[in-house]
Amino acid sequence: MSEPASALGHATFDGFASIREIGPLGMITLRARPDTPGLAQAVHRALGLEMPAVRRIVRQGDRAVGWMAPDEWLLILPYAQVGDTLDRLREALGAAHHLAVDVSDARAVFRIEGPKAAEVLMKLTPADLSALAPGELRRSRAAQVACAFWADEAGFTLVSFRSVAGYVMGLLGHSAQAGSALFPS
């Protein structure tokens, strides 16, 4: 089998912030009612992480669990481990009503880095970035398409659908162009 190919072959752009397409990352959509017995234990068994609070993402190394909706979480892990992790999840959840499905290939993932990384996103999303709490996963839109993003020490990770990866890269590049910082220092 071939190596898994990300949507844009790790395209990059350098402006007042730097943009990198990364991935593919392993991603699992897990849907279950939050009061499902054994849910937190199953996620912990699968990923070694606690469940995040509403609109938060819990990260550790190359793994993360993000709150997407009251009955939906996004599990992030190395691409190659998705199959085994799905098996462990399904086994742990057993007959409890849930849906766990591989969405690794349905996504494109971008890194936006640099001290002014937030200004790139400010041009694209109506979300209030300065009100973003530490560890918050925000679902919103980037111009005309859906996205989710969260911040870390070095910048932001932004996830979009794979089919619009080229559009999102175009948006990020346009927004990060040298000379267009919103608050030039």
Partner: peptide, 12 residues
């Protein structure tokens, strides 16, 4: 009311 986000019309 589910996620607490103050969403603007374009997100709805």
């Amino acid at each position: 009311p589910y996620c607490g986000v103050w969403a603007e019309e374009t997100e709805l």
